[in-house]
Amino acid sequence: MAEWVSVRSSAIREVGYDAETSRMFIDFEDSHPVYTFCGVPEAVFRELVNSGSVGRYYHQYIKDRYQC
């Protein structure tokens, strides 16, 4: 079961992570459905939700990586 965390971001509403499958889910403010990322280390999820800029971290370390 995924753990969901609301984040402070103008682009991202909340982020989920399922440790059993190493899948991360991102719910963007302006799009549906929720995006799924595969093979994501838990540390990347934790760094994303704790970063000073969630959007910047997403663009630098997640976007176009961890494709399912």
Rank of each mutant, 00 (worst) to 15 (best):
V49T: 04
E47V: 01
S9K: 11
D27P: 04
F25I: 07
A43H: 02
A2G: 13
N50P: 08
H32Q: 10
V5Y: 15
R65N: 11
H32D: 05
E20M: 05
Y61N: 04
I12R: 09
S10A: 08
R13E: 10
G16Q: 14
I62D: 14
Q60S: 03
V7N: 07
I12G: 10
W4L: 04
G16K: 08
V5A: 15
V15S: 14
M24Y: 08
Y35G: 03
Q67Y: 06
S9C: 13
R56W: 01
V7Q: 10
H32F: 01
A43Y: 02
N50C: 05
A43V: 04
D30V: 00
E47G: 05
Q67F: 09
P41Y: 05
S9G: 15
P33T: 12
R46L: 08
V5Q: 15
E42A: 06
K63S: 02
I12L: 08
R23Q: 13
T36R: 12
S10Q: 05
V49R: 09
A43N: 08
S53P: 01
F28C: 15
P41T: 02
M1S: 12
V7Y: 10
A43G: 05
D18N: 15
C68D: 06
A19R: 15
V5L: 14
G16L: 07
I62W: 15
V44P: 10
V40R: 06
G39A: 09
Y57K: 01
Y66A: 07
S31H: 04
S31W: 02
C38H: 13
M24R: 11
P41A: 07
E42K: 13
D30H: 08
L48W: 05
V15Y: 15
G55K: 00
H59V: 00
